[in-house]
Computed example of a mutant assay.
Amino acid sequence: MKPASRLQRRQHPQIWNSAPQLADIPIISTQTLISAGSRAVILAPHPGDEVGACGGLLQLLSNLDHPMLLISVTDGSLGHPGSPLWNDERLRTFRPHPQESVDALHRLGVPPNGLQWVRGGFPEKSLAEHEEPLAAFIGHHLRPGDVVFSTWRQDGDSDHDTVGRAGALAAEVIGAVFNELPVWAWHWPLREQKRIPWHRARKLRLDVWTTARKRHAMHAYSSQLNGEPASGIAPLVPRVILDRMGMPYEIVFI
């Protein structure tokens, strides 16, 4: 996820809690979104994106015993430059052995054998320079008939946008269905609401327990939630992100 400092200028109201179009988005069921027998493929640019973008969807699919593949594109190793707490040694412990992500999936209720998990190891914050090999990497793990869920190609974060473009290309080549998940776009100022493709938006409802588990899972990423005031380092995931995760739905661009 992107540093909180980039959101400091984004005050309320934001699109996620103020756009009137949100109330009119058509409802879609999990079964309509993903037909029986199809495999769901989740593309996560950074650790935590799979929870922030579609932690509810992961739970619903797990409950239905849908086959799932999670592709973690980067390990998030560049999230704490200059941090005395999250130094290179500690990051090597937490990220290359992704304990936070393992814990997050456990909190979602997704069993260890409930999905396949592929980690790309691509360099964070410079994915745009590796878009072609990234598309090939994603395509290598796709098969015809898959239903892909990626961050939106216009989400506003370079890595998110790149994963969206690479995922769209790979899905087209392989013959998979491609869907997009806005993450940071919800935190644009309300005046930017016309940039959202509302005609493509569908709302996946989440019950109170699914919503609560999604928030609980995000709290597994302690390295992103806890800043270091003494060092002047803000949390990577600001409070407003957790507030948005309390909404009883997820939005998918189909």
Results as ranks from 00 to 15, higher is better:
1 M>W: 15
3 P>R: 04
5 S>Q: 12
10 R>D: 10
12 H>V: 13
13 P>L: 01
14 Q>I: 11
23 A>D: 08
26 P>M: 07
28 I>D: 00
30 T>P: 02
31 Q>P: 06
32 T>Y: 10
35 S>G: 08
36 A>I: 11
41 V>W: 03
42 I>K: 04
42 I>C: 01
43 L>P: 10
44 A>P: 11
46 H>T: 13
49 D>K: 05
50 E>C: 03
50 E>D: 04
50 E>P: 06
54 C>M: 11
56 G>P: 12
57 L>Q: 08
59 Q>L: 04
60 L>S: 09
61 L>D: 07
61 L>A: 06
61 L>F: 04
62 S>Y: 06
64 L>D: 11
67 P>Y: 11
69 L>C: 01
76 G>P: 00
76 G>M: 03
76 G>S: 02
76 G>I: 09
77 S>F: 14
77 S>I: 14
78 L>M: 03
83 S>A: 06
87 N>F: 02
90 R>N: 09
91 L>G: 10
91 L>S: 14
91 L>V: 15
96 P>Q: 09
96 P>H: 12
98 P>I: 07
98 P>T: 04
99 Q>E: 13
99 Q>D: 09
104 A>P: 04
105 L>F: 14
106 H>G: 15
106 H>C: 13
109 G>D: 07
112 P>A: 14
118 V>H: 05
119 R>T: 09
121 G>E: 08
125 K>C: 12
125 K>I: 10
125 K>R: 14
130 H>G: 09
138 I>A: 05
138 I>Y: 04
139 G>V: 03
139 G>A: 01
141 H>R: 08
144 P>Q: 07
147 V>S: 09
148 V>L: 02
148 V>H: 01
154 Q>C: 02
156 G>A: 11
160 H>C: 05
160 H>F: 03
162 T>Y: 00
162 T>F: 07
163 V>K: 02
164 G>N: 00
165 R>E: 05
165 R>N: 08
166 A>W: 06
168 A>Q: 15
168 A>N: 13
170 A>L: 13
171 A>P: 04
171 A>V: 02
172 E>I: 03
174 I>S: 00
174 I>D: 07
177 V>M: 01
178 F>N: 06
181 L>A: 08
182 P>Y: 04
183 V>N: 00
185 A>C: 11
186 W>D: 07
188 W>F: 13
189 P>Y: 10
190 L>N: 06
192 E>Q: 15
194 K>V: 09
196 I>Y: 14
200 R>W: 08
200 R>G: 09
201 A>T: 10
203 K>E: 05
206 L>E: 10
206 L>Q: 14
207 D>M: 01
209 W>G: 12
209 W>L: 10
211 T>C: 04
212 A>I: 03
217 A>L: 04
218 M>E: 10
219 H>M: 01
220 A>N: 07
227 G>P: 15
229 P>N: 13
229 P>H: 14
230 A>S: 15
234 A>G: 12
239 R>Y: 07
242 L>G: 10
242 L>N: 14
243 D>Y: 05
245 M>S: 03
247 M>S: 12
247 M>C: 07
250 E>A: 01
251 I>Q: 04
